[in-house]
Structure formats: C-alpha cells, structure tokens
C-alpha cells in the first residue's frame, strides 16, 4: 500500500476530527428518543456522517487529478487582507466608521504587489469619503463616523 498523500490525509483527517468534535459536543445536548427527538440527535447523526466521510476521503484515491487550488502561498496578500479586516473591527469599535474604513482599505490595498502606498492612500481616502457621504449621511448607518477621542 502506498503512503497516503499528505494533502489527502490532511483533508480527510480534518473532517474526521471535526466530525468527532461535533459528536462529542452533541452528546451534551440530550439525544432524546426516536419518538421525541432531542436537540442532540440530529447533530450526532451529522457529526458521525462527517467523521465517516473524513475516513473515506483519506482512504480513497481521487478520481483524476484535482486542479491545484491557489498555487503558491501569498503571505503578504493574505496578511494584508486579514489585518485590514481586524483593523476595521478594532477602529470601528473605538474610533468610528471613518478611521475604520480608511485603515481597512489602506492596509488591504497594500497586499497587492503591483500597487504602491501612494495609490493605496488615495484609494483609502476616496473610500472614506464614500463611507461618510453614502453610509453616514445618506443611509444613516448605525456606527458613528467619528466617535471622538
């Protein structure tokens, strides 16, 4: 028997683990009986099915070759997108929609290798203006544009 390819093992193993976790959690909800199904029975079935499918994924060779998804890792792009959204959350909570918009657009725009900080800055400025005009003024968005210091 040939060794199971890493990616396939990871995909199947992940689903198996997730299925087991769901089953473990579902046990605590109360299974009930077949005539009076409790809140835990359905997730229990789903979890066990997921675990089973996980095993099957790891065990069966793919029919044909799956096209590679995504290609090379692009840490810069990923980091900029994730940090951009985190900044939106943080600044939105503490400073308001304006700064949150600016930071989110500016940082995520830096993730593109063809762009430059100047273009990102201008884009962020433009989007902040849109946020102020469209969301704060026109749509009466719940989050204040500026919460003050």
């Amino acid at each position: 028997m040939k060794a199971v390819p890493v990616k396939r093992a990871a995909a199947g193993g992940l689903m198996l683990l997730f299925g087991l976790a769901v089953m473990l959690e579902a046990r605590t909800f109360g299974l009930g009986s077949l005539a009076r199904v409790g809140p835990g029975l359905f997730p229990m079935i789903v979890g066990s099915a997921l675990g089973l499918v996980g095993v099957l994924i790891a065990a069966t060779p793919e029919a044909g070759t799956e096209p590679e998804e995504g290609g090379r890792p692009d840490w810069r792009g990923w980091a900029c997108i994730v940090v951009g959204i985190l900044l939106f959350v943080l600044l939105g909570e503490h400073l308001g929609l304006g700064p949150a918009t600016f930071a989110c657009v500016f940082v995520s725009a830096l993730g593109d290798r063809q762009g430059n900080p100047r273009a990102a800055f201008l884009l962020a400025l433009a989007m902040t203006a849109v946020a102020g005009l469209v969301f704060t003024l026109a749509l009466k968005f719940q989050m204040p544009f500026w919460r003050g210091w």
């Binding site: 994730v82 939105g92 949150a100 995520s108 719940q142």
Partner: peptide
C-alpha cells in the same frame, strides 16, 4: 487592486449592518 479593498470594506459594512455588532465581522473573518 482597486476593486478588492473596496469590496472588503463593503463586506465589513454589510456584515456589521445585519446586527449592528462587530461580532459578525469577526465570525465572517
């Protein structure tokens, strides 16, 4: 490169506005 930062902003705003809380944005992320 001009489109996706704007789209990300719209995503944040869209998710926030469903419940007016940041927890949704974190869930989405």
């Amino acid at each position: 490169r001009f489109l996706y930062p704007c789209a990300l902003f719209f995503i944040c705003v869209g998710v926030y506005s469903t419940n007016n809380e940041m927890a949704g944005v974190i869930q989405t992320l």
